[in-house]
């Protein structure tokens, strides 16, 4: 009885809430995760050719970087609303908006990574008869990986947080629970969903950090890599 009371007295922390709504919480978390993963993966697939295009010279770099920066400036609430006529109230709307946001960080980081590849490494590979494709996949990409992963981590953490705004169209994962709890001032639900959201971001960041260590074993010998934070 004492435990059920916390729902009645509207406590911040409520064990009974966790028990009785565990299914709801799990569903919201799953939606949150798949929206984030889909957005970041699509963002990566779109950002990669854009970064390669931007690398071709100033004529391409200017428009590509300018456009992604403008997209990043548009507030999330406006971005989702502007996409409404195209997608209606759907998860595709939220994913599209999040993809557009992730592009700025991903394109910049991939570009920075590719441009930091030492000229000697490229020349050596060319001298060994590597074509442009093989040069990219076997030399440039692995060397650009730390910068790419740093960008991926920033993009993922931001996307986890931004997904909550998707509750505007009813597809915001844990944000939906926050939105639903607002009219009744349901404290336990707002706090639980918020904490889960932050935990999700931290877990995603650590997971990507682990992946980065796994993919770039050579950076470990030179001491722990200092993750360069995006200033913009």
């Amino acid at each position: 009885m004492a435990e059920q009371n916390c729902l009645v007295t509207n406590d911040w922390i409520c064990g009974e809430y966790l028990r009785s709504r565990s299914q709801e919480l799990a569903d919201a978390t799953v939606q949150h995760i798949w929206i984030t993963v889909a957005s970041v993966l699509i963002g990566l697939v779109v950002a990669f050719p854009l970064a390669l295009l931007a690398r071709r010279g100033r004529y391409f770099a200017g428009p590509v970087l300018g456009l992604t920066t403008v997209l990043y400036t548009v507030p999330s609430l406006a971005m989702f609303s502007l996409l409404l006529p195209l997608f209606g109230l759907s998860a595709a709307l939220v994913v599209t908006g999040l993809v557009l946001y992730s592009l700025t960080i991903l394109v910049r980081n991939i570009l920075a990574g590719l441009e930091a590849v030492p000229q000697e490494a490229k020349e050596a590979a060319e001298g060994m008869g590597y074509g442009p494709g093989r040069l990219l996949w076997e030399v440039e990409l692995p060397l650009a990986l730390p910068a790419l992963m740093a960008g991926l981590r920033i993009a993922t953490v931001s996307t986890v947080a931004l997904t909550t705004v998707g509750s505007l169209v009813g597809k915001g994962g844990l944000g939906n629970l926050i939105e639903d709890a607002l009219p009744s001032f349901f404290k336990a639900q707002v706090l639980t969903a918020s904490v889960l959201c932050v935990l999700l971001a931290v877990a995603a960041d650590l997971l990507l950090l682990g992946l980065q260590r796994l993919l770039t074993p050579w950076t470990r010998t030179a001491g722990p890599a200092v993750a360069k934070t995006e200033a913009g």
Binding site: V157, A161, T164, L182, V198, A201
Partner: peptide
């Protein structure tokens, strides 16, 4: 700052 959702903070304030 990046990991904390703006919407969550505002909602918490409203509680």
């Amino acid at each position: 700052g990046r990991a904390i959702p703006v919407f969550a903070v505002l909602a918490l304030f409203m509680m």
